[in-house]
Design a protein around this nucleic acid. Structure first.
Length: 542
RNA sequence: GCGCCCAUAGCUCAACUGGAUAGAGCAUCAGCCUUCGGAGCUGAGGGUUGGGGGUUCGACUCCCUCUGGGCGCACCA
């Protein structure tokens, strides 16, 4: 509909002799009495047109309103807004579209032909996923779903590093626990991984190998077992949340294939590297950065920055036209370095979107829990899903914009599990399913309905909400903001509950029953599709 | 000290990216079950959008400044 209006309004502007470089934008007014869509073009174009906004608006309104069956009224209001109200014909048509499209309703093709990659979670296999990882996991997956719904081809990717110091400590932590089992306990250093899961891994090794590993180095069987077990655990947790990555990309492969080395020499060729104090530095100050950073230490070992840059080059080389990194706030300072280096290497960094989410603060018994994987002072995602449900966890993480800190009160999550807003949404879906069952048991056929018998405000209000679904999906995908989809679905569920209380669906009057059943069915489709986008279930019964 | 993010109803958060009268949930108070699912609905109270300045037809939104919080500021990842 926006597209339709854009065309007619642009034509009106042209015939009025206003220069054509202004594309009118439309939005849904906050206040219902201001119509279904509104535009401020008249105010935007007033200066260049040399007219006052209201005059210009009146001219446009007059040109548009003539005999468009989809538009009921066009009004000029306030300082020069043009408010459009759509006709019943339009909304009835939308309602039929929804029923016809079914599970596909809301999909679009705006991203057709675009290969998108979403990299998220990317936690190294040193411990179970925590609530802290949960936000990025759920958010990244939902961004991927939004992109799929708008026609993109999406690769979900997990980048990890199983080499390096932390992994060495991990392996040695397991080794020490293993020796404890053999009764050869040595003191367990404070900066080692304290979690109970380390003992479990050691126990498994002991059961499998007995005391054969007594003199094994930390980096051998211990590290291997730890990595395997922990990765299995991480994947299991993600699976519970409905998340499955397509690619697990090992940082180490970048070394093995020589890509790290190649990146280093390419950067040198671009003249953005220099040597000092035995290290190789990236000249970020010349690339708009704060200060220069080391890419190869004086030990000859690269810092994480170099493989990071090499990895992102690979993303370009693999042909992705949209590259999304979902990162926690602690990485906010590191990604500009990568972007700057990529730009220096000649890549179009506009194709990259770095989405930073703020931290989740865990509150337990009124106290903030400080998270640390090594100290095992954390709440795991699995524990969270045990206390709430995966649906509640997903919904909770998606409810808020990522720019804000998220307070996760564990007590509240548990206690609120039946007043939680996710149930409000799912209840609407289950309730409609129940109505449909009821109608079917009475043998009612509601295939062809005359929708003109639905004039009540509760009915038209619901129709309007439903018609807005595709635009909502589209704009959420463009802005990477799932929380607005949640808000929309909550409103739509509310519109349905109001309709349900005001109007009985299944009545003696077959004409009215058929029309209201169509409305209910369309609502079920929209809520069901919305839930699918959020990765939560839409139950038939609850 | 420097950089990034944030501050909106008692609490947790929205506000379609600069639009008209700042909205939801929770909590509080008052109503609604002889009919398709009451995990629901209706209504009420609650705000100088942290303070101060600026930009313009118009600011929660942009700029400056102050206050208060979070995250960074490695030859760790």
């Amino acid at each position: 509909m926006k597209e339709h209006l854009r065309k007619t309004v642009s034509e009106a502007l042209k015939t009025m002799g206003v220069s054509g470089d202004i594309t009118p934008t439309f939005e849904k007014p906050r206040i219902a009495s201001h119509g279904d869509l509104t535009t401020n073009v008249a105010m935007v174009a007033a200066k260049s047109a040399g007219m006052n906004p209201r005059q210009l608006a009146a001219g446009i309104a007059a040109a548009v309103s003539q005999s468009d069956p989809l538009i009921e009224s066009v009004e000029v209001a306030g300082p020069g807004f043009i408010n459009f109200r759509f006709s019943a014909v339009y909304y009835h048509r939308r309602l039929r579209d929804i029923v016809a499209a079914g599970k596909e309703f809301g999909r679009s093709f705006s991203g057709k032909g675009i290969e998108a990659q979403v990299e998220f979670v990317s936690a190294n296999p040193t411990g179970p996923l925590t609530v802290g990882h949960g936000r990025g996991a759920v958010y990244g997956d939902t961004v991927a779903r939004l992109l799929e719904w708008t026609g993109h081809r999406v690769t979900r990717e997990y980048y990890f590093n199983n080499a390096g110091r932390q992994m060495r400590i991990l392996g040695d932590s397991v080794r020490l626990r293993y020796l404890e089992l053999l009764g050869e306990g040595a003191p367990f250093p404070e900066d080692y991984y304290q979690g109970e899961y380390i003992r479990d891994i050691a126990k498994r090794l002991f059961e499998k190998e007995g005391d054969r590993l007594r003199d094994e180095p930390a980096e051998g069987a211990f590290k291997r077992q730890a990595e395997n077990d922990i990765f299995a655990d991480i994947k299991g947790t993600l699976r519970r949340l409905g998340i499955a990555h397509d690619v697990f990309y090992n940082e180490n492969s970048l070394y093995e294939s020589g890509k790290v080395e190649a990146t280093l020499s390419d950067l040198r060729a671009k003249g953005v590297l220099y040597d000092q104090d035995g290290a190789v530095w990236l000249r970020l100050t010349a690339l708009g950065g704060e200060k220069d950073k080391v890419v190869v230490k004086n030990t000859g070992e690269p810092t994480y920055r170099l493989p990071d840059i090499a990895y992102h080059r690979e993303k370009y080389r693999r042909g992705f036209g949209l590259i999304i990194d979902v990162l926690g706030a602690d990485h906010v300072a590191t990604y500009p370095d990568v972007v700057a280096a990529l730009k220096a290497l000649g890549y179009d960094t506009n194709l990259m979107k770095v989405l930073i989410h703020q931290f989740v603060t865990i509150v337990r018994d009124g106290e903030v829990v400080k998270m640390s994987t090594r100290k095992a002072n954390y709440v795991t995602l699995d524990e969270l899903m045990d206390e709430a449900t995966p649906d509640v966890v997903r919904y909770f993480f998606l409810m808020r914009g990522i720019g804000n800190h998220l307070n996760f009160d564990l007590k509240l999550a548990r206690e609120q599990s039946d007043t939680n807003p996710v149930f409000y949404l799912q209840y609407a879906h289950a309730r409609i399913a129940s109505i449909i069952r009821h109608a079917e048991s009475l043998g009612i056929d509601f295939g062809e309905a005359d929708l003109s018998v639905l004039p009540a405000p509760e009915e038209t209000g619901l129709m309007k909400a439903l018609a807005a679904f595709p635009d909502t999906v589209e704009s959420c995908a463009q802005t990477y903001e799932p929380h607005r989809l949640i808000e929309y679905l909550h409103d739509t569920a509310g519109a349905f509950h109001r309709f349900y209380h005001a109007r009985r669906v299944v009545t003696e009057d077959m004409k009215i029953t058929a029309a209201r059943m169509t409305l209910a069915l369309a609502t079920k489709i929209v809520i069901g599709n919305g839930c699918s986008l959020l990765g939560i279930t839409a139950p038939e019964k609850m």
